[in-house]
Design a protein around this nucleic acid. Structure first.
Lengths: 385, 385
DNA sequence: ATGAAAGCGCTAACAT
DNA sequence: ATGTTAGCGCTTTCAT
């Protein structure tokens, strides 16, 4: 039974709510509220069982919590016996360090935030996997946020990461991001940021991307070499730099080979499946149907291929198609899709390495721009030689 | 120049390390170490710029931090003018609440952990997406861990989540998990756990899965109805319950239609691409080649189909194939793959709903077992009628 | 080798 | 309506 802490009686005690997970009591006699002192106390319906803390260990062993802390951290100034005893008691009490508290003290959360527009196609998951590998090795956790291609969500994501005091952030922007205040907030607070794939030109931070221009150039030249002359391009959203670079590669390849650039052969796709289908149909139903298409990425190329097949257009004889990224589907579809391969997992690994460096070096750090190379993988969808 | 806080001299001062992000100084005259008081003080190379706290706001406004806290939380007892002033000052100082501190006080991190074996195929990312949607709406963050099908990594994941004091955990186990101590630790600490897809029978917690048995049964019956008689099965790793249930569906379908169950027609695949290819070849090269195969999932079915194609086996006339999950590839491959569709995103949503309920209800909560229904999607790979 | 005490940023009971 | 105070669990100086 509960005794009043003042009058020590057990009658006249009622429960009066829960405070910090502990049952609060009220003594009608003394007219006071109180919670029970001492260890976690109450067995009352409380959602969290008490988790052992270093204080619990200290009490159990009759030593100070500093000593416990030292024992737990292989500090040099610690008696091996004390250390052993602490470790044993920690085990007995099922002690789990509270990283929240540690982070608070150290002003360092050992957590990295990642913001990606989506992770349903294989591209971003693979990058994240690469990044996570590297982070894990360095003892960092990762919080993954999806902006779902929505600017508003992206802003919210950034604020969550900031509030959780991540030590650094990896970002690939949405297709609609034009304002960068939410990213600059990281900078203002000294939290390093590395952009990848969908980078932000306005910010003076490290960036990792692939040589989109070169990849596009190679892809389109390959089409030209295979005798295609009326080559169209399904590009990405205008706001993204990859869109720009790949478009430029496309244009330059045409020019280099003396082919005219025709505006009506370029359409822009927002990268959703729906819009990809729409763009594909637009191109295929146009008055002068192209004999080849270079697509901004594989998912788009695949929708195009499906649409073309539905219209009984023969690939590659009547139409050549090249994609970008080497999505697993591109090997499986028939004919297999020619594509520009990017070192996807490396993008993630590379970005994380750069970020960890930035964290380590602090202000001494100066931004890096890393560009990874692409390889053209030639498959059935484009080779008619 | 830095003045000694005791003698006020500027000579004889040297730097002596950095303490909590602040430069520490040493005065040789006074023989003392000190850091500069006042706001973040030092402009020294420190990685983190000082982030404004409620105390900074309070000082700037000459009010107490409680008042600031209240103003920031739309507490009722607050003068609208004070509130406005606080909000404005927060904006000016670029204040960002420190959720670590808040979590520490509230013993609640508003974070949910998710452990999945991988997220490269579309299955787990889609589940995570569904789960995240629900979590976000409820104001929860999500930390995603990949165990990479490694027991050791899974144990480490669990410990990270525990240390970060997540409020609840969603788990799909690795194929090699047989010891569940790391999961039980969550229970011991009152952190609710919900398993999905790859569930743990030994634990008395909520579970979400699809009706694997029913799905498998329908799939195999469909093959039988299409005249296939020598039906093989590529199953999953023996440790998983989905393997069991789908195998049972396969057996029962055979039995129901008076077909013999032949042990040599069942092979178990660990679900890696490599092993899938290996299993496919084993089956196709066996002395008595089956005329149909029911596969434990689509990625495996797809490898089988590719292998069969390579051997010029005609699908579906010479061999029928059915998969499980409706991976996006299954629509695209030719012939398109017949598959048992699961409501993938719903699994995630459902699991998260259950978890949030468990968190809310605390000890009052009792485990739920939710089973979602499947649909057979009939495509070219199995229909020869 | 150990302990005492301050403080990380915040919330909330209690007093005013 | 606002201030005071204690405390969440931990690290780290300083003193012993």
């Amino acid at each position: 039974m509960i005794k009043c802490i003042r009058c020590s009686h057990v009658h006249a005690i009622t429960k009066s709510g829960i405070v910090r997970g502990k049952q609060r009591y009220y003594c009608k006699d003394c007219n006071i509220h109180f919670t029970l002192p001492g260890e976690a106390a109450v067995e009352v319906r409380q959602q969290k069982k008490h988790m052992a803390t270093i204080v619990d260990i200290a009490k159990a062993l009759n030593i100070s919590k500093s000593t416990v802390s030292r024992a737990l951290h292989e500090h040099s100034d610690i008696n091996p016996q004390t250390r052993a005893a602490v470790l044993e008691m920690a085990r007995q009490l099922d002690y789990q360090p509270n990283l929240l508290a540690k982070s608070l003290v150290k002003s360092k959360s050992n957590t990295i935030g990642i913001i990606v527009p989506e992770f349903l196609t294989y591209f971003f998951p693979t990058i994240i996997m690469g990044a996570q590998q590297v982070a894990e090795q360095a003892g960092y956790n990762v919080i993954i946020c999806q902006s779902q291609e929505s600017f508003k969500t992206e802003v919210a994501n950034a604020s969550v990461l900031l509030a959780n005091r991540v030590d650094g952030v990896l970002i690939s922007m949405t297709r609609e991001t034009k304002n960068f205040e939410h990213f600059k907030a990281f900078e203002r607070h000294g939290i390093p940021v590395v952009f990848f794939n969908r980078i932000c030109d306005e910010m003076d931070t490290s960036k990792v991307l692939v040589n989109d221009y070169e990849g596009a150039l190679k892809a389109v030249e390959h089409l030209i070499e295979n005798g295609y002359r009326n080559i169209a391009h399904i590009g990405g959203p205008p706001a993204l730099r990859i869109t720009h670079n790949r478009l430029k590669g496309y244009r330059d390849a045409l020019e280099k080979h003396g082919l005219p650039f025709k505006k009506e052969l370029v359409v822009h796709c927002n990268l959703s499946k729906k819009d990809a289908i729409h763009c594909a149909e637009k191109l295929l139903n146009g008055k002068r149907r192209p004999d080849a298409v270079f697509c901004v990425n594989d998912p788009v190329a695949i929708q195009l291929m499906l649409a073309a097949k539905k219209m009984k257009i023969k690939i590659p004889s009547e139409m050549g198609i090249v994609g970008f990224s080497n999505d697993p589907i591109s090997e499986v579809i028939e004919p297999a899709l020619t594509t520009v391969q990017q070192p996807v997992a490396d993008i993630g690994r590379s970005a994380m390495h750069i970020l960890l460096d930035a964290i380590k070096e602090g202000d001494a750090y100066s931004p890096v721009l890393q560009s990874l190379e692409t390889t053209l993988i030639i498959r059935g969808s484009s080779s008619r030689k």
